[in-house]
C-alpha cells in the first residue's frame, strides 16, 4: 500500500498486521506506541515506592494494584508496537534501559511525598485518559485494541487519585497547604504533558494524516483544562498564576507558552534531565536485580539454587 492510499483509507482501526503498510507509517506508529509503552513502565516505577509509603492498608492495596496495571499496560503496548515489524520488544526494552527510549515528561521528575501522588494519579492520569480515549479510534488496530483494555482499567486509577486528593484537601490545614504546594510544583509539568503548541509540534501532521493521532496537542490540552480546572477548584486547590491561562469566549483556553520552561522540556525530551536519568538508571538497576527470576524462568532445566534471591528494591 502506498502512502496516498494509507491517507485515503486512514480511519479508526483501519489497518492491521495483515496490511502491507509503507515504512513511514510503520515507523511513525512505532515511535508513538513505543513512547506510550515506555511511559507506562516509567510511570509505574515512579509510583512504586508509594506501595510502601501508603498511609493505610486500603491505599497500599490500591497503589499496588495500580502499579501492576501500569506494567501490564506497558506489556500490551509493546506487543502493539512490535506488531508493526520495525522494532522487537527486546530492542525497545533495551533502549529504555540504556537511556535511548523516550517517555512522558512528567515521569522524569522525582516524586518523594505522599501529597504528590494525586498529581500523577489524578491529574497526569486524567490527562492521559483524555488522550487515550481518543486513541481508541487510532488507525493501527492493535493499538486501538490495547486502548480498549487500558481505558477499562484506567478509570479506577483516576478515581483513586481523585479520592486521595479529596482526602488530603479535606484534611488538616497542613495537609492542605502541602497539597497546594505540590500542585503548584506539578501544574506546569502537567500542562506540558500535551507537548508544544500545534505549530511547534514536529510529528503531529503526519501522525494525524494517517489516522494514528486523533486530536492535536492544543485540542487535547483544551479538553483537559476544561475538565480538570473545575475539578481542581472544587477540592479547594488554587490554580497557580503561571503559566497564565486565559479562558476565551468560545470556552477554550489559551496558555501563555512563554510562561513554561521549554528548555527543561526539551532537555527532558532528549533524556538529558538529571532526575530523569536517575529514574532510567533506577529502573535498569531494578531490572538487573531480578535478572535471576528471568533466568530461572527461561532455563527450565537448571535449579534455582546457589544464590540468595534478591528483591527489586
Amino acid at each position: 500500500m502506498d502512502l496516498d492510499t494509507v491517507k485515503d483509507r486512514a480511519g479508526p482501526r483501519e489497518f492491521s498486521p495483515a496490511d502491507d503498510l509503507p515504512e513511514e507509517y510503520r515507523k511513525a506508529a512505532t515511535r508513538m506506541i513505543e513512547f506510550h509503552a515506555n511511559s507506562e513502565i516509567m510511570g509505574a516505577y515512579l509510583e512504586r515506592p508509594f506501595i510502601r509509603q501508603a498511609p493505610s492498608i486500603d491505599r497500599k492495596l490500591a497503589c499496588s494494584a495500580k502499579v501492576q496495571d501500569e506494567i501490564g499496560h506497558g506489556q500490551l503496548l509493546y506487543r502493539a508496537a512490535e506488531s508493526l515489524g520495525v522494532k522487537t520488544r527486546e530492542e525497545m526494552l533495551d533502549d529504555l534501559a540504556n537511556g535511548d527510549g523516550k517517555f512522558l515528561n512528567c515521569f522524569h521528575y522525582e516524586m518523594t511525598d505522599w501529597v504528590e501522588t494525586p498529581m500523577i494519579a489524578f491529574f497526569v492520569d486524567g490527562a492521559a485518559m483524555r488522550r487515550q480515549a481518543t486513541l481508541r479510534r487510532t488507525s493501527w488496530e492493535p493499538y486501538a485494541h490495547a486502548m480498549d483494555k487500558v481505558c477499562f482499567e484506567e478509570g479506577f486509577h483516576v478515581k483513586h487519585g481523585e479520592d486521595i486528593l479529596r482526602e488530603l484537601m479535606s484534611g488538616s490545614k497542613k495537609e492542605q497547604e502541602l497539597t497546594q504546594a505540590a500542585f503548584e510544583e506539578w501544574w506546569p509539568r502537567i500542562i506540558q504533558f500535551f507537548g508544544p503548541t500545534d505549530d511547534k509540534s514536529t510529528h503531529h501532521d503526519f501522525a494525524a494524516s494517517v489516522g494514528l493521532k486523533q486530536q492535536s496537542n492544543d485540542q487535547l490540552r483544551n479538553a483537559f483544562l476544561d475538565q480538570y480546572i473545575p475539578k481542581a477548584r472544587s477540592y479547594g486547590l488554587e490554580i497557580p498564576d503561571e503559566p497564565r491561562i486565559r479562558e476565551l469566549d468560545d470556552g477554550t483556553y489559551e496558555v501563555e507558552e512563554g510562561d513554561l520552561d521549554w528548555d527543561e522540556f526539551f532537555t527532558i525530551a532528549k533524556n538529558d534531565y538529571e532526575p530523569g536519568v536517575g529514574q532510567i538508571n533506577g529502573r535498569k538497576a531494578a531490572q538487573e536485580a531480578v535478572q535471576w527470576v528471568r533466568d530461572t524462568i527461561e532455563s527450565d532445566a537448571t535449579a534455582a539454587g546457589g544464590h540468595a534471591p534478591q528483591a527489586a528494591d
Partner: peptide, 21 residues
C-alpha cells in the same frame, strides 16, 4: 479497591472516566 465504583468523587467526572467506570 480495584474498581472505580469504590471511590466517591465530587462534581462531574470526565466522560472517559464515567465510561470506564
Amino acid at each position: 479497591y480495584r474498581w472505580a465504583t469504590t471511590y466517591k468523587t465530587t462534581g462531574e467526572d470526565a466522560r472517559e472516566v464515567v465510561e470506564s467506570e
